[in-house]
Simulated assay, not measured.
Amino acid sequence: MGKVIAVANQKGGVGKTTTCVNLAASLAATRRKVLVIDLDPQGNATMGSGVDKYQTPTTAYELLIDEKPIHDVVIKETSGKYDLIAANGDVTAAEIKLMECFAREVRLRNALAPVRDYYDFIFIDCPPSLNMLTVNAMSAADSVLVPMQCEYYALEGITALLDTIGKLASVVNPGLEIEGILRTMYDPRNRLANDVSDQLKGHFGDKVYRTVIPRNVRLAEAPSFGAPAMYYEKSSAGAKAYLALAGEMLRRSEQKFESTEAE
């Protein structure tokens, strides 16, 4: 069964969508079957995948509200070589409509059930706020990947986020866990960044990925060309960092599987 990972942070501008798109592309490059679900009405993951959010015939709205079969909503042709469920402004309407729906917290979980065995990884790009779309993502996910910048308010913010995740899990998904904490836009010359990084590792231990995503111009430029960094500039530091993260994630999954088998 594939792993469903929500990429979430209540704070905007931390590299959430960049992580979702580039990690998905890096895993797809290792011949894993990957699906990206864009639940953010801004549609940045959609545009970053080379899909025009204004022209796409179907979005997450049709999946969640109209209950269309997932195979009818998935877009197969993306620049990142993964499958995509797109988002645009219609998803804002989905958030409102969900309030009227039966079993509104688990609509996404139920929709994904038929394809859980088909994909190796399913990434959900969450909106940067706690709403019914985020609740659906948390309900459907096995784990949460948290991208964050190493800056002054980061530790306080991540504590609040993990508290929110814990409360949501107790209500809609008791098995939900933290997949990992990813340090993004990292500048090793910045003393504060290093201090916060050390505090993160001291507090969260091996939940913090060893891979660090640097500040990188090519990584920032890639979305405007509708492609993940590895297909825009594969030799860039950003593209290499996400490939390294994919490798680290695969190793972690294998180790976890082996330890479960040993028990």
Rank of each mutant, 00 (worst) to 15 (best):
K3I: 14
V7F: 13
Q10G: 07
V14P: 00
T18R: 04
T18E: 08
C20S: 14
N22K: 01
N22M: 03
A25C: 02
A25R: 04
S26G: 08
A28E: 04
A29W: 01
R32H: 15
V36K: 02
D38C: 01
L39K: 01
G43T: 06
G43D: 02
N44H: 14
A45M: 06
A45L: 05
Q55T: 04
T56R: 05
T56H: 09
P57N: 12
T59M: 13
Y61L: 04
Y61H: 13
L63I: 03
L63V: 05
L64Y: 01
I65F: 03
I65W: 07
D66W: 04
D66G: 07
D66Y: 08
E67M: 01
K68Q: 15
P69L: 06
V74C: 10
V74W: 00
I75V: 13
K81H: 04
D83A: 02
I85R: 07
I85Y: 09
G89Y: 07
V91Q: 05
I96L: 04
L98T: 08
L98W: 07
E100M: 09
C101A: 12
A103I: 03
R104T: 02
R104L: 06
E105M: 12
N110Y: 09
L112H: 05
P114V: 11
P114R: 06
V115Q: 08
D117N: 15
D117L: 11
Y118Q: 03
Y119S: 06
F121I: 10
I122R: 00
I122Y: 07
D125Q: 10
D125W: 07
N131T: 08
M132A: 08
M132R: 09
M138S: 09
A141N: 00
S143G: 06
L145Q: 08
L145K: 05
V146F: 13
M148S: 10
E151T: 09
E151D: 13
A154V: 11
L155T: 10
E156I: 08
G157I: 07
A160C: 03
L161N: 08
L162G: 10
D163H: 15
L168C: 15
N173I: 02
N173Q: 12
P174E: 13
E177W: 07
E177K: 11
E177A: 10
I178N: 05
I181D: 00
R183S: 14
R183C: 15
Y186M: 08
R189M: 13
R189H: 14
L192V: 11
A193M: 09
N194L: 07
Q199P: 05
G202H: 11
F204G: 03
F204E: 00
K207N: 05
V208L: 11
Y209F: 15
R210E: 15
T211N: 10
T211W: 12
I213Y: 09
P214C: 04
R215Q: 10
L219C: 12
F225S: 00
A229T: 00
M230A: 07
M230F: 10
Y231A: 01
Y232P: 03
K234N: 09
S236L: 02
S236Q: 02
Y242D: 06
L243Y: 14
L243H: 14
E248Q: 08
Q255S: 01
K256P: 00
T260Y: 14
E261F: 14
